[in-house]
Each structure stands twice: as C-alpha cells, then as structure tokens.
C-alpha cells in the first residue's frame, strides 16, 4: 500500500494523500505530499478514524482542481458519495485506498473496533439512553419516557459544536446552528431540544452513520441514534438510502435544488504536514 501511495504521489496521480501517520505512538490524521514523501513510511492503518473527507472538502474549496488520494473505510466512502451528490467534491478528483470498515444499518457485514460497546453507566441506562441500543429499542419508549430520556441527554450538551465540526457531511457555508433566529444563543444550557433537532433535520438524507459525532461528543449524547432516526424516516418515506444512492435526496429540508457553494465553515487547519 505504501508503495502504491508513493508512486501516486511521485507520478502526480494525486497532489496529496490523506491518511494517518504514527507520531509518538498515536495515529494522527496526516496529509502526505511528494515533498515529504519519506513520511509515507510512517503511514498507519489502525482503528483510528477521522473525517478525512472533510479535510478533502476544505482543500477542494481552496483549490477546485486539486487531486486527492485518501485512505477510506466504508464510512468514508459513503461520505464521499454524499459529498459528490451535493457537489462538494468531484468523483474524478478523488482516489481511495480501501481499509476495513464498521457495521451500520447502511452496511451490515463489517467490523470496526471503535464500535465495540464501551461500558455505559448504570445511571445513564436508568435515566438516559444507552448509546449501544438499537434504534428499535429507543423508538419503543413510550412518549413520556422517550421525552424524559432524550431531554436528559440533551441537558448535558455544552454546545461545543464538536458534532458539527467533525461531521464529514456538514459543509454548509452558513450553518443554521449559528443562526440566532433558529437556535437561541447565550446561556448554557443551550436551547434544547431545538439545537439537536435542527441539526438532526439537516442530517436527513445526508448522515452516513459514521458515528464520528457521537465519538466527538464530550457528553456521550447518543447522537448516532438520533440521526439514524431521521435517516430511517427518510428511508421509510422515500426509500432513500443515504450514502449509497447516487441521486440527491428526493426530499431535502434545505430546498429542492442544491445551490450551496463549496465553502467550508472554517479554513483548513490541523491536517497540514
């Protein structure tokens, strides 16, 4: 794999390759380039995951002609599909090297060490929502119980925006979550459940169930279940399978036609070698 990546970089098949490099025993998202080609020797494939395609989107926004190589698990590939559908990246400009992937209702047979259930505390199980439950179990809560449990989880939110910032398919130039007519600003506790529901609605037909948001959430809010719910509704109502379909969602909260410019919400940082 390393040889292939090196030859891509040398021959100019790609301008950059996005993967992970081992630094002090930690896999760090890394942008490999021809100028520092020896770094490819430290490339690692490990359970570590990051939304590399988000970095790709940011790069393409700066330089629309850039050709990008990327280490891709199945979730990365689903995200790439969504980004193609929404005109954030062009399929011709991306080449991938495949790596192992994670189970999801969007792809049944797979493995991903990240998703091995961690321990969920007894109190959270009693009053909140166990992040490892299946969506059916959460849907089965009665109205009051469901409300209490979700609101318990949302009350923990510290509005760090980690969920938005990590999400590979969050690319809007102007974010509704920053819009103070839509979501109240100012104090903590944030405006709940509006903050979470606004984000959920925007994820219908977009969320590719990678779980990175939940992984990023410092408060362990079961965000993945919430977005599975909106995707489930999209699937039931429209038979639309996010991340595998090459068409735009038949139903879009953002408007019927996509007119967003490919502009990231913040300048490229972090991935610079």
């Amino acid at each position: 794999m390393k040889e292939q990546i090196k030859s891509w970089l040398e021959q100019g098949t790609v301008d950059v390759f996005l993967g992970y490099r081992e630094v002090d025993h930690h896999p760090i998202p890394w942008c490999f380039t021809q100028e520092a080609i020896e770094e490819v020797d430290d490339l690692v494939v490990s359970p570590a995951r990051y939304s590399l395609e988000k970095i790709a989107t940011h790069m393409a926004a700066e330089d629309p002609d850039i050709r990008i190589g990327m280490l891709a698990r199945d979730c990365n590939n689903r995200a790439l599909n969504v980004l193609y559908v929404w005109n954030q990246l062009r399929p011709e400009q991306v080449v991938t090297v495949e790596a192992n992937c994670c189970p999801s209702p969007l792809k049944e047979h797979a493995d991903c060490s990240y998703l091995e259930p961690g321990t969920v505390g007894a109190y959270k199980k009693a009053v909140g929502i166990d992040n490892h439950l299946r969506l059916e179990a959460v849907e089965a809560y009665g109205p009051e119980e469901g409300r209490n449990r979700w609101m318990y989880e949302f009350q923990k939110c510290i509005k760090c925006y980690g969920c938005r910032n990590i999400c590979p398919v969050c690319f809007c130039r102007e974010c509704s979550l920053d819009h103070d007519d839509l979501v109240g600003t100012g104090p903590l506790l944030p405006d709940i459940p509006i903050f979470h529901l606004v984000r959920a609605v925007h994820m219908a037909g977009r969320c590719i169930d990678c779980g990175l948001c939940e992984d990023a959430c410092p408060m362990d809010i079961p965000l993945r279940l919430l977005y599975q719910k909106v995707n489930r509704i999209a699937m039931d109502l429209f038979d639309y399978r996010t991340g595998t379909s090459g068409d735009q969602p038949p139903f879009s909260i953002l408007g019927d036609r996509v007119t967003l410019e490919p502009k990231p919400i913040q300048p490229v940082t972090g991935a610079e070698a």
């Binding site: 321990t119 969920v120 505390g121 007894a122 109190y123 959270k124 909140g128 923990k156 408060m219 362990d220």
Partner: peptide, 8 residues
C-alpha cells in the same frame, strides 16, 4: 463529572 455521575 457527568461520566462519574452516570457510572453511579
């Protein structure tokens, strides 16, 4: 703190 609380 929240994690401590959730663990009991």
């Amino acid at each position: 703190v929240i994690r401590a609380k959730e663990k009991g």
